[in-house]
Write a protein that binds this DNA or RNA. Structure first.
Length: 591
RNA sequence: GUGCUCGUAGCUCAGUGGAUUAGAGCGUUGGCCUGCGGAGCCAAAGGUCGGAGGUUCGAAUCCUCUCGAGCACACCA
């Protein structure tokens, strides 16, 4: 990576000057040289403030000048530093590095050769990550809120793979316990309705309705009726189950209903191009004894205590804000007991890191999950929890809150029906997980260029269109690009050269973007990057004629730039989990 | 009450302790099609970075306080 090369170069320069006695370094050694991108182009391609870290102004200025002089002198002699054009100093001691235009242009070749792997960096060195996301309960369809974890998790997984990690994407189904009983009773209600039997909505201890129901104000919402029908079909119209004793009946119907809902959720994920390697069922942990084994392990380790007839685990020992009940006084295990078994299961599978993508309503889990991991002897900083904020949908400038409890659920499937999977993904990924997402439905439904969800795809389609045109005109872009000498473009008029260099600089950022997304666990940078690349290509295309290029050599070089742009755009779309179309269809014709 | 997250342009939001000028998309206003193509390009207007202190050579970025919004604080899952 370019930045790493420059970092090594500058570090070596500091060491050399220090050796000569011309530069003092702290006793702790040379500080890490941070190489960053300046905001303004005139400040070069890269810059470092290392001189300011070594000394305060005005002495930092001297140091910067010494370093710059040394670098300008030695860089041309080292083949690895051939990318450097010149090094300058500015302000209180910044060192600005300008890259060689010929070198930048020649990187188009490297990008084309990298193909679908372009931008890959080896940050992970094959270390393993378990990435758990969505994990919505199989008691209803995925909605606009908890679906957010799906986009963040899936794209984050793609990016981490591009960054050299071995990623297992995982979904955890809570298919055991009380909520499945509730689901069973709710489903039974609809089964009885369908059969024309007397039916009553189940009620909780407080006499209020309790369970999972269709929204009766919305005639299109017949989700649970549909699930009930499926259960009827596989139980001889209920004959196999409805006569069973109460608890057994609820459990059995609930289990069947949950199985159908899981299928439904998997289908939703599938159409959104969200992929999982492992679908994990909580129920398995119960039946195969892992829940019990987890509790025993903690008991032997001395982390459990009894109080008020219940069994608690002392998570506060590891920074949690309160201890958690594992076994209720009534003898049943809690949800936390399953969590213990699950995290133990993951650790036993040998993952180097565990990443959880959870909604804001779960932020209370951070302390408990990290504490659990530590009770099994695992370092807390290998557990990363990404908390994403809630989602509102904006319809006609009115923001509506999505909440299951308020009975105001909007299914993710309904949204995808309206705007398609690609736009859905882009809109969800445009925002940092840390900020609330206002989904602008009106904007997402637009079909033209004003829809930001389509701009990257339009960019890719345009590249493909240009290449298609070239073939029609009798050229062979792929083979011509092979023989191109990119450096000829250096003689282009300034306005054209600027567009070409700008495009190459943008394309070369991909590695840094992937690295940043992977390090910060923030996939959203990819969307903005994709838009920047598309914009850079448009300007290039606007300024630099290809079929009407001044010479064969220039045309061939521009074919190479175009192919490099296609490579990067396709890679970005693939990481975002979107399709990379060669042409865009308009559903409605203008005028 | 305690804790977590967030307050940046009319709207929705990027922004990695750095540079006289804090960016993008949408929206608004104006310009550019007999030249690969308009699925685009150029330009303008629009900001007390919620507020007040502090740390620093340097703060939208770090710290404290404060105001506002969301969420969480179960022997629920």
């Amino acid at each position: 990576m370019i930045r790493d090369t420059l970092q090594r170069m500058i570090t070596a320069a500091i060491a050399a000057l220090h050796e000569r006695g011309e530069l003092d370094v702290p006793e702790s050694g040379i500080p890490k040289v941070e190489v960053e991108r300046p905001q303004q182009v005139v400040h070069g391609d890269y810059a470092t403030a290392i001189a300011l870290k070594l000394a305060r102004p005005p002495r930092s200025r001297e140091i910067a000048a010494k370093l710059a002089a040394y670098l300008n002198e030695t860089a041309p002699l080292v083949p690895a530093y051939e990318l450097v054009e010149r090094v300058e100093t500015a302000g209180p001691g910044f060192i600005n590095i300008h890259l060689k235009p010929e070198w930048l242009l020649r990187q188009a070749r490297t990008i084309i050769d990298a193909g679908p792997d372009v931008g890959a960096v080896d940050l992970g060195r094959g270390s393993t990550i378990n990435l758990e996301f969505v994990s919505a309960n199989p008691t209803g369809p995925v909605h606009i809120g908890n679906g957010r974890g799906g986009f963040i998790g899936d794209t984050l997984g793609n990016v981490l793979r591009a960054a050299g990690y071995n990623v297992t994407k995982e979904y955890y189904f809570n298919d055991a316990g009380a909520q499945i009983q509730k689901l069973g009773r709710s489903t039974e209600y609809y089964m009885r309705l369908a059969l024309g039997l007397p039916a009553e909505k189940p009620k909780g201890a407080d006499g209020k309705e309790e369970g999972y129901f269709d929204n009766e104000n919305d005639p299109d919402d017949t989700f649970y009726q549909g699930i009930a029908r499926l259960v009827l079909d596989e139980t001889h119209q209920g004959a196999d189950v409805l006569a069973l004793p109460d608890d057994e009946r609820a459990a059995l119907i609930g289990k069947r209903a949950a199985a159908h809902i899981m299928q439904h959720i998997r289908a939703t994920m599938q159409r959104l191009n969200i992929h999982f390697d492992v679908w994990f069922n909580e129920g398995d942990l119960v039946t195969n004894g892992e829940v019990q084994a987890g509790i025993e392990f903690l008991r032997d380790a001395g982390y459990l205590f009894e109080q008020d007839g219940a069994t608690w685990m002392e998570t506060t020992r590891f920074g949690d804000d309160k201890d958690r009940v594992l076994i209720k006084s009534g003898g049943e295990t809690t949800y936390a007991a399953s969590d213990v078994a699950y995290i133990r299961n993951k650790l036993n599978r040998g993952f180097d890191r565990l990443i959880y993508v959870l909604g804001a309503d779960h932020h209370g889990y951070v302390g408990r999950l990290k504490a659990m991991a530590q009770m099994f002897g695992y370092s807390a900083d290998k557990v990363h929890i990404i908390i994403y904020q809630h989602v509102n949908i904006k319809v006609n400038d009115v923001s509506m809150r999505m909440s299951k409890r308020l009975g105001n659920v909007v299914n993710l499937d309904d949204l995808v029906d309206l705007v398609g999977p690609d736009v859905t993904r882009f809109f969800y990924l445009m925002r940092s997980h840390d900020t609330h997402l206002d989904f602008d439905l009106k904007l997402a439904m637009k079909e033209g260029e004003e829809n930001p969800g389509l701009t990257v795809q339009y960019g890719h389609a345009r590249v493909a269109g240009v290449l298609r045109k070239a073939v029609e005109a009798g050229y062979h872009p792929e083979t011509e690009a092979l023989g191109a000498d990119l450096a000829v473009l250096v003689s282009d008029p300034p306005e054209q050269l600027a567009a070409e260099l700008n495009l190459m600089r943008e394309l070369l950022k991909l590695e840094e973007i992937i690295e940043r997304c992977a390090q910060a666990l923030e996939p959203h940078h990819l969307t903005k990057y994709g838009m920047d690349v598309a914009a850079a290509f448009h300007v290039f295309y606007d300024r630099c004629p290809m079929l009407r290029a001044e010479s064969d050599a220039v045309r061939m070089a521009r074919f190479a730039l175009t192919l490099a742009a296609r490579t990067v755009l396709a890679r970005v779309l693939s990481l975002l989990g979107m399709s990379a179309p060669d042409r865009m269809e308009r559903a409605t014709e203008a005028e």
